[in-house]
Amino acid sequence: MTEYKLVVVGAGGVGKSALTIQLIQNHFVDEYDPTIEDSYRKQVVIDGETCLLDILDTAGQEEYSAMRDQYMRTGEGFLCVFAINNTKSFEDIHHYREQIKRVKDSEDVPMVLVGNKCDLPSRTVDTKQAQDLARSYGIPFIETSAKTRQGVDDAFYTLVREIRKHKEKMSKDGKKKKKKSKTKCVIM
């Protein structure tokens, strides 16, 4: 069974824990209790493949930012979460993405942009803004509501699919490099 290491990042209060708990335990946590770091595991079937999701729910508070490099190193894919009623959390996505790329030393890291709290009427981040940002990053965008469960499975499952595509691409690139290195030079 394939294991996928997913990391949920975003500013404090955007609903990272609520999304994760909704996926794992099928219930909505409405009281806000700032996370330092929590880890969850769940076995699911995605596109006919049974897999184990190892999900790291991270601290959004700035005082825990020193811990970010460590979990970013171990993560295979990242859910970059903002709240649709919090423009600052949307603007912060850029910083999370840049930090992930720096730590992973790669421009090509599996990510999904997630606009959470889409059940709320007080939207300050337009869907088109988020779609445009995701398009500019070359990553999928999904709106979710941890409260109603809308888009929750889709967000995590899409990230797994992005990781699969990335692994497939990397193995193809690896095979191309191996083929090239088999060419021999004969000096007579």
Rank of each mutant, 00 (worst) to 15 (best):
I24W: 02
E49T: 07
G174R: 10
E37T: 01
K178A: 09
I21P: 00
D33Y: 01
D54H: 04
K169L: 06
Y32H: 09
T127W: 05
T158S: 09
Q129Y: 14
D38L: 00
D108F: 09
K5G: 06
L133K: 10
G13V: 12
D119V: 04
I163V: 04
V7T: 07
E31F: 15
Q99H: 08
L113I: 09
L133H: 15
Q43H: 06
D173F: 14
S122P: 08
L23R: 14
V114W: 00
L159K: 02
I36F: 01
K167E: 06
K128A: 05
I46V: 09
K167A: 07
L19W: 03
K104D: 14
M188Y: 12
D57M: 00
G174V: 06
D69A: 05
R164A: 14
H27T: 07
Q150I: 14
T127I: 09
K178G: 10
M67G: 04
L79Q: 00
V29T: 11
A130C: 12
A134V: 03
K128C: 08
S17W: 00
K177M: 09
S122Y: 06
S65M: 11
D153R: 06
A66T: 12
M111F: 10
E3Q: 14
Y157I: 08
I100M: 15
I46K: 12
L52H: 10
L79H: 00
V109Y: 04
T124I: 07
H95P: 02
Q22M: 04
S65Q: 06
Q61A: 14
G15H: 01
L6T: 15
T183F: 02
Q22F: 05
E62C: 04
D119G: 11
I84T: 13
K178W: 07
K180G: 09
D132G: 06
K42V: 05
S39M: 15
A134F: 07
D119M: 14
T124W: 07
V125P: 11
I55Q: 01
K42A: 05
H166Y: 06
D54P: 14
G13Y: 09
M72Y: 07
S181R: 05
E3F: 06
M67Q: 03
F78S: 01
V109W: 12
D126R: 05
V44K: 09
F82C: 13
N116Q: 15
D153Y: 05
A155K: 02
K101T: 15
Q22R: 09
V186I: 12
S181T: 12
F78D: 01
K88V: 14
S65R: 08
M111H: 05
S39H: 03
G12M: 11
V160D: 03
Y32M: 01
D33S: 03
V44I: 14
F28L: 01
M188S: 10
V103L: 11
F78G: 01
I139A: 05
